[in-house]
Simulated scan of single mutants.
Amino acid sequence: MFRNLSLFRFSAAVSRDLERLPEALADHRLRPCGPGEMGTRGFVPPVGRTAEDALHRRLQDRQFLVVGTETKLLPAGVINDELARKVQKISDEEGRPVGGRERKRLKEDVLNELLPRAFVQQSRMGAYVDTAQGWLVIDTASRKAAEELLSQVREALGSFPAVPLAPEEGPRVLMTDWLAGGNLPSGFALGDECELRDPATATGARWKGRAEDLSSEEVREHLRNGKQVFQLGLVFADRLSFVLGEDLVIRKLKLLDVCMDTLDTDNNDAVGEFDAMNTLLAGEVGALLARLADVFSIPRPADADVADAGIETRKAA
């Protein structure tokens, strides 16, 4: 279940190129960390955990994938303690101080000794591409993590010119107007959470409200004092609740009861459960994204816009 949505867009030409995605992922499966590696990243099955499970799941016009990571856990305190022990031993046995260059070499030795014995932490990040409407949807609110997944897809395909959203209408200005005047676009209603900031101050004075009446006098007073909306809780079509940021990242996404009541719960296997949940999710999110694209005037890139991006370029063998 996706909880946060970082969004990118791509053209119809890129959609056609994505038909080869299932085959492209095969050579980029996650492999275990080697003894001397701090971490690895690669694709893992959206459903299942074995090496035989598919790295890709297609549901209508959406293709689902998951990037997994393995990261060695070596706390800085553990490294520093072991390094201090080695430095003290040299000082005691040889009666001399340890210089900076030697300390650096000793630290590298410590890392090499500890890495093979370090615990491995695993994580997964889901995403899907909507080839009909040109959306890449990534389950994270972190721009850095989203870019890392996008880079992983680009590495597999050789090229994937998906671009950040480029709204023609300023999200912060529009959301501030919605909150101040109560004139929300059709289909949207206020939730109970927002973050207001004063963009004119260096410190970025802010007010956060959760489980609040956003039409209250307190909120209006903050707006009169010059604060603007940086995050706003919204409800869409009485089916989805979420918090929309001025960066158009969707956080705290939740399917509401009227939506969940339509979910087919008669699935007795993981594949059926995955398909039912994500078909419902992607359909509801698709309707939301279409509405957001209209409200904020978010264009889908034209084929000409990515002609120079080299979608036919392939990675060298």
Rank of each mutant, 00 (worst) to 15 (best):
G286Q: 08
A180Y: 14
M125D: 12
T203C: 00
L149I: 13
D294R: 14
E168S: 06
A287H: 15
L248M: 13
D294P: 01
V249I: 14
E108Q: 07
D61N: 12
L263P: 03
V258P: 09
K315V: 11
W207I: 12
D261K: 11
A270R: 14
C33T: 09
D213H: 05
D81H: 13
G48F: 00
G181N: 06
R62D: 00
R239H: 05
D305V: 02
N112R: 11
I138Q: 07
L223Q: 09
P185H: 07
I138M: 13
A200V: 06
N183Y: 01
K227S: 01
R9K: 13
L59S: 08
F160S: 04
P45C: 07
R57L: 04
A200C: 04
M175D: 04
P35K: 00
Q133V: 06
A118K: 03
R85I: 03
A270F: 09
A24D: 00
H222N: 03
A189W: 12
A309K: 07
R224Y: 07
E148G: 05
T71N: 11
L115Y: 04
R31L: 14
F8R: 15
P32A: 04
G126M: 09
L234G: 08
L244E: 02
Q88W: 12
A205G: 06
S123A: 13
H222C: 07
L253C: 07
V110Y: 02
R117F: 10
N225K: 11
R224E: 09
V110I: 03
M175F: 02
F10T: 01
W135P: 06
D81S: 06
L165I: 10
V153T: 04
D139A: 05
V285L: 10
D53P: 13
M38I: 01
M260V: 13
Q60L: 12
I90M: 06
L196K: 10
G286L: 00
Q60E: 15
D139P: 01
C259W: 10
G134I: 00
L263T: 01
S215T: 09
P75M: 06
G34Q: 12
L292T: 01
E147G: 12
E273V: 04
